[in-house]
Computed example of a mutant assay.
Amino acid sequence: MASIKKFQVTFDCAEPERVARFWCEVLGYVAPDSDGTESPAWFSATDPTGEGPRLFFQRVPEGKVVKNRVHLDVRAGTGLVGAERLAVLEAERDRLVALGAVHLYTQYANDEDESCITMQDVEGNEFCLD
């Protein structure tokens, strides 16, 4: 049986600290206390409970040019259905737009799937509220 591996999620970006602080606000993560070891080339964020993966943000010279092949799903409406779920997702969407996110589109519930909202972070990386 294979052992479970720990992992981090790495974001290529132009402004690592800015993107990291955005995601700290989205997820309730924390940025490291300033101890003089920060670099303008990278920044990290961690789950204060120790359960979620570390997020690592690294500066790259090129900008984002195509849709993400991998994205984060932010579980804002877990356990909710119908209008109640949509109301929670829309409230979270509004909170994140105020932080600099962009609302791309909303997929409304149908006979098979619940509502989901697709957004972009402060550098255009796609993510979903579901």
Rank of each mutant, 00 (worst) to 15 (best):
G28T: 10
V65K: 15
R69N: 05
Q120H: 09
S3T: 14
R95F: 09
V122G: 02
R18F: 00
D12Y: 01
H103S: 07
A41V: 00
Q58E: 14
A101V: 11
P32Y: 12
L55D: 00
T118N: 13
V81C: 06
G52K: 08
A20Y: 02
R21S: 04
W23H: 06
V26R: 01
V122W: 00
S39N: 13
T106N: 02
W42C: 04
Y105R: 15
G52Q: 12
F43S: 10
P40E: 15
M119P: 06
E92T: 14
A45S: 05
V97S: 06
E62G: 11
E112W: 15
G52A: 11
Y29R: 10
L104Q: 14
A87H: 09
M119L: 06
S44N: 09
D130K: 12
G63I: 04
V30D: 02
A31Q: 09
D121A: 06
L86I: 06
A2Y: 08
T37K: 13
G28D: 10
T78Q: 15
E90L: 14
H103V: 12
R93H: 05
A31R: 00
L55Y: 00
G36H: 02
V102L: 07
V30A: 11
E17M: 05
V81H: 09
A101G: 07
V19W: 00
E38I: 04
T10W: 00
E38D: 15
L89Q: 05
Q8A: 13
Q107V: 12
D73M: 12
T37I: 06
S115H: 03
V60D: 11
W23C: 04
A76C: 06
V26F: 01
L55S: 03
E62A: 14
C24K: 04
H103P: 03
S44E: 13
F43M: 10
R95C: 08
V65C: 07
E25R: 10
E92H: 05
L86G: 08
F56N: 05
L27R: 02
T78R: 15
N110G: 14
C116G: 01
Q120A: 10
D73K: 08
R75Y: 01
E25L: 00
A20T: 05
D94A: 02
P16Y: 02
A45Y: 01
S44F: 00
L89K: 11
